[in-house]
Amino acid sequence: MSSEMIVFFILAAVAAISGILMITRANPVNSALLLILNFISLAGIYLTLNAQFVAIIQILVYAGAIMVLVLFVIMLLNLQDEGPLREELSKRHYANVFFALAVLALIIEVLGWQGGETLNAMQQMAPNAVQNGMVQNIGDVLFTSYVFPFEVTSILLLAAMIGAVVLAKKRFP
């Protein structure tokens, strides 16, 4: 087992476990912190994929901006613990969990063991993966091929900003 593999497994384990812990915490602050941990480990996994730009963005945008905002809101609302999770779970919830796990089983069945020729051929990363992940390359593609969606994103963000202001400010009748 190569060192790359070991790093991946550690990061993957942290990501999966922090995710599972995140959805089982009664206190939203704990959840948020676990999610940040998840995001950071994801950023590490991105690095193993040679996606340096995405890894940095992941830290900056998700862990840095979005999760700070979430934490800020949690604290602003001063939410109490939800109470023990067991009390929340009803039969309906068990059924839902069962369905979700069934979907997971099917996905793994389809992807992992029945992946077929196409996926089995991808044992190696493409040779230019290192180049692709670099900021220079990303910027190149972003501002040439994807310049229009990029500009449209600004409109989306503007709209979201206005929406957020309106929603947060206005009292509903």
Partner: peptide, 12 residues
């Protein structure tokens, strides 16, 4: 997929 296919679109 972006890395394994060598295509930057995925990262876009």
């Amino acid at each position: 997929f972006s890395s394994y296919l060598g295509n930057a679109t995925g990262q876009m």
